[in-house]
């Protein structure tokens, strides 16, 4: 059994807006084994980015973690003081973001932005930090690093900037790298470079990666474990093979069925009808029930827990619980699933 480095249990995060409390994250649980990559996948509004920001407590001022636990090597980060939390950020747990074009400060050089982290967390001198910055740029595959280190972000392409972001994140040898849609804004050939780089560095440095993405292709190729999110909750957590070979939750099944594949021909896509519910008007019961082809009265009344299948995989669906009132063989988006009952 691999050691768990990060364990998120029943995380809840709310935003307080003029229209009321928005429960953006409302019951998220997953764990990150040491040295592995876990993907958090979901569509827009599923709460996947808020989850990642909640882990590092980087929410905007109107957002607040209202419940749950985030355990990093056993310690609950939600109970940390702000000062203690700060010493962790960019040091033990680092983060990179979706928009490389806007994530770097335009008025500081690349070198200044990398060395800042080193000075803050490792107490390096300015000179030593600058020298280390050059090494880091070399590590992330930037050509002529001693020249680039003196340049400003506007002088770099999107792919280069994302490499700089990675250099900043890796400066202090973090144990966890959280990557929030790191390649979504990049072209596919550049995406391949960046994903390859992350994988390469992960193997060299032994860190764990939390990859937030909407791209199931990226998940299949990069992740060891996957948490699927829908409407602020994790609906399925399993290893990557099980998820793609035998997805359990109807939402996961639907998602895979509606995906146009670059590697094979499909006669017809099977879409999930309807739309994602608004966080201000969540449906009663299972949040997917209005769009689920197998929904029963139980699904419309009571929210299922994350049920464990005994093999480390979890699913938030009544089909896999003894209380399931429907048929034993359930048709889910054209696939058969066997109920637990």
């Amino acid at each position: 059994m691999v050691e768990t480095i990060l364990d998120v249990r029943d995380l809840r995060t709310s935003f307080y807006t003029d229209e009321g409390e928005v429960k953006a994250v409302d019951g998220v649980s997953f764990s990150v084994p040491k040295g592995k990559t876990i993907g958090i996948v979901g569509e827009s509004g599923s709460g996947k980015s808020i989850t990642s920001l909640s882990i590092l407590r980087l929410l905007a001022s109107n957002g607040k973690v209202v419940g749950g636990e985030v355990r990093f090597k056993g310690d609950n980060l939600l109970a940390y003081s702000e000062k203690k939390m700060r010493s962790l950020r960019g040091n033990k747990i680092s983060m990179i973001f979706q928009e490389p074009m806007t994530s770097l400060n335009p008025v500081f050089t690349v070198g200044q932005q990398i060395s800042e982290t080193l000075i803050e967390h490792q107490g390096m001198s300015k000179k030593a930090a600058m020298a280390k910055s050059v090494d880091l740029l070399k590590l992330v595959g930037i050509p002529s690093p001693d020249k680039r280190v003196k340049q400003y972000p506007y002088e770099l392409s999107g792919g280069m900037r994302q490499r700089v972001m990675i250099a900043i994140a890796l400066a202090c040898n973090p144990e966890i790298l959280i990557a929030d849609e790191p390649t979504t804004a990049l072209d596919v050939t550049i995406q391949a470079q960046i994903l390859g780089l992350i994988r390469d560095l992960q193997q060299r440095m032994g860190m764990s990666v939390v990859l937030i993405t909407h791209d199931l292709g990226v998940v299949a190729e990069t992740c060891d474990y996957v948490a699927v999110m829908y409407a602020g909750q994790v609906v399925e957590y399993s290893d990557v093979r099980t998820l793609f070979r035998k997805p359990k939750h109807p939402y996961t099944v639907g998602l895979l069925k509606s995906l146009p594949r670059p590697d094979e021909d499909q006669e017809k896509l099977i879409p999930i009808h309807g739309t994602v519910p608004s966080p201000l008007h969540m449906p009663v019961g299972c949040r997917f029930n209005p769009r689920c082809p197998a929904a029963t009265d139980l699904c419309r009344e009571k929210l299922p827990d994350l049920f464990d299948d005994g093999e480390g995989n979890q699913v938030r669906c009544w089909i896999y619980n003894e209380q399931w009132p429907g048929e034993k063989e359930v048709d889910v988006f054209g696939e058969e699933r066997t109920a637990r009952c």
């Binding site: 806007t102 008025v107 803050e120």
Partner: peptide, 26 residues
């Protein structure tokens, strides 16, 4: 509200540094 301020926070910098170095200069 800019992304690079979020980056600065994610680096573990103090509020002081973020406000006076990263935000003010811009």
């Amino acid at each position: 509200g800019q992304d690079y301020i979020r980056t600065a926070r994610a680096k573990g910098l103090t509020d002081r540094v973020i406000t006076y170095r990263h935000a003010l200069k811009n």
